[in-house]
Write a protein that binds this DNA or RNA. Sequence first.
DNA 1: CGTGTAAGGAATTCTGACACG
DNA 2: CGTGTAAGGAATTCTGACACG
Lengths: 107, 107
Amino acid sequence: MAADKISYKDKKVISIGVISELTGLSERKIRYYEERKLIFPERTGRGTRKYSFSDVETLMEIADRIEDGVQTYEIKKEMTKKKNEKMREERNKMIRGQINAQFNIRK
Amino acid sequence: MAADKISYKDKKVISIGVISELTGLSERKIRYYEERKLIFPERTGRGTRKYSFSDVETLMEIADRIEDGVQTYEIKKEMTKKKNEKMREERNKMIRGQINAQFNIRK
DNA sequence: CGTGTAAGGAATTCTGACACG
DNA sequence: CGTGTAAGGAATTCTGACACG
């Protein structure tokens, strides 16, 4: 159930034309942000890019940062930082969970 | 928030080629089920069909029924019936909610 | 009835490049 | 650096039709 919801948001099924409409960004911009490693579409068998709803959100954030005059390289650093913070959080949650499990076993 | 989740599942953004891959159905079949009013894609400005993740689920159900030898007309009736049941349920929930609200006001 | 296929056109997407700055 | 654009090719999608049954 929960896995289903994740898959809708992250499943790469949207073509660049629709992404362009959804984000208001030109296809040129979208391809350029990929070149700068800010976005990672999948490719179909014959090379067409496919994006997810998550990618739409990421692109909106990128567009905001660009508007603020931030360079793609800086944006990439920001995004990496955010991702690491999230991973640390997840890890801590897991460790806490395991500690609790230990206590429960001893009871 | 809740509205966001609905929008991902029901947002029509997927082209027929991807839908074909996702469902394993030929494009011919997918277009035919539309002709028989079982599925309702949106169209982009220039006429390209766009489907949602909900449509993927609906198509899988249709494929199952077809495999059972059920005709499209019957499938349509089944789907209409199911939809009506769901709407009755929703309505009852709402009425119950309003009755509860009435009681709360009197308290 | 449900589905495959060949047909021709229109729209989409792709890449590499030139341009401006 | 970020983005527009013209260029040419390849892949996608669309419709209406013929076929089988």
